[in-house]
Design a protein around this nucleic acid. Structure first.
Lengths: 317, 317
DNA sequence: ACCAAAATTTTACCGTTTGATAAAAAAATA
DNA sequence: TATTTTTTTATCAAACGGTAAAATTTTGGT
């Protein structure tokens, strides 16, 4: 009868115990008495069944795939935070879904009692995110804009992230009264010494959480469309290897910031140190794929809110 | 702020909580803080996910004793398929365990690429089995109900196997819009000529796999309890030697269909030829013992899903 | 648009179940 | 027999499931 079934028997018992526990719903005490062993042995068998993956838990709901993708993204790119929302294949929107999810995450930060510093970038996605925020009263927190939204011609882009945000959450807010780009490194230096700007710079460096959009480059890039960047410059940047930008900071395929070139004229506040702060990118869609992957690779962002199909791309790469 | 499609969100949240709990292994406290709700709400969501069968736990490990019993059953009764699940001595449930196993076998059939015709009976066990099926998209298959679930008084029994099944697996389905029993052989003949019924009859005859419960007879038989059969008739049947029924077809101790008597008024679709199709009975428990043995002896079923202690009975006989 | 009723959520509490640890006992191995 | 490994026993803090009252939100009627 019993030849050498040691290992086999053990897994058999584990399977039996796991079955009684997970399928039949008995307590470990009951299993112990049914199988004639001590409760601790029963417990060991049950957890062995789990460890050996004898019991398989399946969750039949679209949301499950999203959660799993988020967990894998976290692991793959060493993220502090990841959230994946279901894709809507039919929709062309670049914000539906992630805007709500982004707002929820911002809300979680704002709900904390101890004061935090939140920083935001700009762009359509971020504007849509802010628009999903419920009114809140957060006098203990401060919010700062990492980047301006002044165009080359001096006018302001229509979306107004920091002020919209301040409108609904009633916290002290620090705008960035500068263009995204200035004409020279020297001009940047001068502007950054203005007292108002200095306060924002200082605050930005201490931000606990940062929420940014991720810009792709190309002829139809929002950066051009919105008049932040001349098309000739765009071509030069792409030739230099740039694939995306965050708050105006250009980076290449590996997520390394471009040295020289335009980055010396970016007036935005630098992203705070990634080891301390959460820098959460909010983006989805085919056109953002490469830029997102580069930003994740290079650790420019350590948090991500995206949708399923974008997550799929980022995972298979 | 427009931000909630409530109805949808409820199950979403349940799925999310269930995933975090069962897959990610978080505690309910953690889930509560992640989702921004109280622990009790988290607990409710987790158990809702269970109740709504969003999470399905399955144990695929073959337990040696069960495997051996299955092999012996196959041999002893010339079965095409046999599956034995562990017994839970204390439990009074007649479905726990075999329902999951039955669902797994149905799933295997549904996963085949070439189109198959699946037929199902009715009853509590089968309903519990169907409830364990994961959502699937199977436009290539067809499913047909071998029997109606209309009572003597014209009302429908609460369990609704074919429609529940169609709900989750999205295949063309063919219900049997008749009672289990009609008043006379002649009426049956008339009814069976209705075009709708004829299609079901035709399909049933071509079924590749059939899943049925096995009904025992007696004063407390489900057939009586559910109002399909008057108690006086039951007594007569038993006197005539009937020990069990499948889809309403009465059989005796040797598994031979009773001639005459009530069987001439059974409106169910006849079971397809056993040499071609798999007719799999799903049943366990003391009260089903005799009916099961008779059905196996007579070859009414050529497949079986049961539990260890029932298997033991069937093997020692 | 308002108020009242109903339903849901939160808060608080309690007994049971669970996972983990450490020492004693038993079994297996050399 | 001595040594190693496993199982049992005992104990404890954390986690869980249930209940009940208070607070909140939703619903329905006016």
């Amino acid at each position: 009868m019993a030849r050498k079934p040691e290992n086999n028997n053990r897994l058999d018992d584990a399977a039996r115990a796991g079955w009684l526990y997970y399928v039949a719903g008995r307590t470990q005490d009951e299993i112990a008495s049914i199988m004639g062993i001590s409760r601790q042995s029963a417990q060991r068998l049950v957890s062995l069944a789990m460890a050996e993956r004898l019991v398989k838990v399946r969750l039949d709901h679209p949301i499950a795939a999203c959660l799993e993708a988020a967990a894998r993204l976290k692991d793959r790119y060493q993220l502090k935070y990841a959230d994946v929302v279901p894709s809507d294949p039919g929709s062309a929107s670049t914000t539906v879904g992630i805007a709500e999810a982004g707002a929820a995450e911002i809300e979680r930060w704002l709900k904390t009692a101890e004061p935090v510093v939140l920083a935001v970038g700009t762009g359509r996605t971020l504007k849509a995110t802010i628009d999903q925020l419920p009114p809140m009263d957060c006098p203990q927190h401060r919010i700062v804009s990492l980047t301006g939204n002044i165009r080359l011609d001096g006018s302001a882009a229509y979306y107004n992230v920091i002020f919209s945000m301040a409108d609904v959450i009633n916290a002290r807010h620090f705008p960035m009264p500068l263009p995204v780009l200035v004409s020279s490194p020297e001009e940047r230096e001068v502007l950054h010494k203005q007292s108002l700007v200095k306060m924002a710079l200082e605050l930005g460096a201490r931000a606990d959480a940062v929420f940014v959009g991720v810009g792709e480059l190309g002829a139809e890039a929002p950066l051009c469309e919105d008049g932040f960047l001349a098309r000739e410059e765009m071509a030069g940047l792409m030739a230099a290897g740039a694939v995306g930008e965050i708050c105006g900071w250009m980076f290449d395929h590996d997520g390394a910031l471009l040295t020289g070139s335009i980055n010396e004229r970016v007036a935005s506040i630098p992203l705070p140190p990634r080891d301390r702060a959460s820098v959460i990118g909010i983006a989805k869609g085919r056109r953002k794929h490469e830029a997102l992957r580069a930003a994740l690779r290079g650790g420019i962002i350590n948090g991500l809110i995206t949708d399923e199909s974008t997550a799929e791309y980022l995972l298979k790469a």
